[in-house]
Design a protein around this nucleic acid. Sequence first.
DNA 1: GAAAAGTTTTCATACTATGGTAGAATTTAC
DNA 2: GTAAATTCTACCATAGTATGAAAACTTTTC
Lengths: 251, 251
Amino acid sequence: MVTEKDHVTMRSLERAIDILEVLEDASMPLRLVDIASRTGLHNATTQRILAVLETRRRVERDGAGYRAGVSLIFGAHAYVTTNPLVAAARPVLQELASRTTLTTSLFVRSGWHRAAVARVHGSRPLGYELPIGAKLPLFLGSGKTLIAELSAEELDAFLTAVEPMINADRKVVSSESLRSDLAQVKKQGFHVSRSERQIGALSISAPVRSARTANIIGALAIGAAREDVPEHETEALTVEVRRAAAAIVAN
Amino acid sequence: MVTEKDHVTMRSLERAIDILEVLEDASMPLRLVDIASRTGLHNATTQRILAVLETRRRVERDGAGYRAGVSLIFGAHAYVTTNPLVAAARPVLQELASRTTLTTSLFVRSGWHRAAVARVHGSRPLGYELPIGAKLPLFLGSGKTLIAELSAEELDAFLTAVEPMINADRKVVSSESLRSDLAQVKKQGFHVSRSERQIGALSISAPVRSARTANIIGALAIGAAREDVPEHETEALTVEVRRAAAAIVAN
DNA sequence: GAAAAGTTTTCATACTATGGTAGAATTTAC
DNA sequence: GTAAATTCTACCATAGTATGAAAACTTTTC
């Protein structure tokens, strides 16, 4: 008999996490009813869960609605201080930043998104802001490095989950062009992005691999304003980035 | 029968939060049994909750045990980008940092702890690191500014909850000396800390008040190495900090 | 290689989360 | 100003989920 492979489940907890994710994706306060409709939960249920989260400071509220709460900040700190990959990457980011004078970042995948989890600023300041923890797409820039070696099934799942894919120019990225970009990243072992996620920005990234499994577990990237990096320098930078990424050893 | 005044409660969710808090306080991976004993939960229960949290990436694990997971980073980002106090403080931190050349921070209380939630680096680099999101005590440095106006009951609750209070010298802070410090902060409207939490560090902080309730909702602080700030300059800096703190208007 | 320590699975049961409903409270409309 | 929406909170019987004891299984220790 084919029993559905059922992973462990706990409805109330999963629902609470659904609510937190909605709040984490919101850029402004949300009303109870909005949260309820976005999560598909009953109002009463949503309100009860929010009440608990509020007493625990995982959410805050005022007249305008509910927001992410202070105590969430402790979790992020714990992550960056205890994660072995981040620890292994830190000195490498540091060295790469001083060798290139550019800003270096470590990106990690989380579900169908990614975030910068560590960063060292170079002496040449970046024009734009890209804070640690911002939820970024996998189909642009360094994101492609993170999904370059997904299995065919995983990639299909990704493509159906995230459509439409929009870039900095507000143009749609076709799955064909993404697939070919990914193939190239896989073949070359790096990715150069120009104005993909941010107009005027250049980034060069290379995969960080697990020492045990050799799977891609992160992406090391340098970021710069396009005008700061003349075309003929990118190749040398690519070499540096690849070498640095390979120097990071973690599981 | 005396029914406890019961605010809304959800056992499974509260337990999950308990587990997360244990992981957030840990500086190294924790085994299942450790988490179970620290939370007082049954092994099976702990494992089931952790399994759910793991599939949602709120925790990670490897052979060494469980740690905070990547997705926690999104929550912190959401907090700092949506919180009105942080938004209101940001330009003030910026200005104060450039006027004083020192590093400025906004601290917020969470339960019986506090954290820096925003920071602007001054041109004079600090010797030590104090990252955003680190869980810090309320009884040292700028923490005192945050609890200067607690009610007598609240302060008693705090004192019984956090003992013993240890400073950077590994000496115990008596509740008497804390009480007198708090009274002084309340009277003067600022606090000057020397080598309290960090040996060799100086910090000056002033309360940020709610525009509606006038309650203390944050502490604005400047931080420096003690040798960088001659004694006779502290008074002028104190004026600057107080003025800046008063300029932040939020609820 | 045996024992200990740690982790996962199973399962019957108790008790908790659930979602109607109704009533407050707040906001909006007029 | 009052009425009408809209949003939020409280209540409660019931379904169904979370629970923890025990046992199976895995990994580490000695």
